[in-house]
Amino acid sequence: MKPLIDVQHLNKTFHLPQRSLDTVKDRLFQLFTPNPKRVLPVLRDVTFSVSGGEFIGIVGRNGSGKSTLLKILAGIYRPDPGARIELEGRISPFLELGVGFHPELTARENVHVNAILLGLTPSQVANRFEEIIRFAELEDFVEQKLKFFSSGMQVRLAFAVAIQVDAAIFLMDEVLAVGDMAFQEKCLDVFRAFKKRGSTVILVTHSMSHVENFCDRLLVMEQGRLVFDGDVTAGIREYIRLNHAVEHG
């Protein structure tokens, strides 16, 4: 069967200038002084593929490249030349707490903008709006501007929108980091429904219990490399070993 996601030799390097030259004035005045760039490889030769219906976990220590990987899959960052990435089907990204909201627009307007950007048609937005608001438990705040929302409320709303998209692939970065226990339980219900429905999910998380409960396969990242790809139990062991290696030098 043809994989839904196919990633071959993915590299991503950030070139950070030592001094920032981000105006015409700076460029003119410093035309002849060298400005060496710090080269920061964030992803190194990452190769993996995902078949339809798989629930995949990605774990790794901070700065191991998990979020950058998801951003490249979502089409937001551009990979270095030479990589081959193929994705089949619509993607619903929920990245870095997923809050692509405008503070001066109301919840209703923000939901509308985000849902259209994620590929819903206006009539689908109208039909699913009630459900989005009910899931986010924000019935009393529909006409309030987002700037008055707590961070928990914003994340709930963003997640509620993301799961209403008819996507083939859901990219979920740290969904469960915010939100109280009741909301986390609701998110877990959504994951169970995804599993039942056969949606493809890539879940970045730090919670080993979520990995154990939901994932069919685990990817472990370390310093931009994919160091493990396979069985969940063995993957968790590998991840714990990596963390211990750092603790004990």
């Binding site: 979502a74 089409g75 937001i76 993607i91 990204p93 990245l95 870095e96 997923g98 809050v99 692509g100 909201f101 405008h102 903008v113 985000n114 950007l117 994620l118």
Partner: peptide, 9 residues
Amino acid sequence: SHLIKKVYF
């Protein structure tokens, strides 16, 4: 940028 950093379009 709040949208561009979160969703591709």
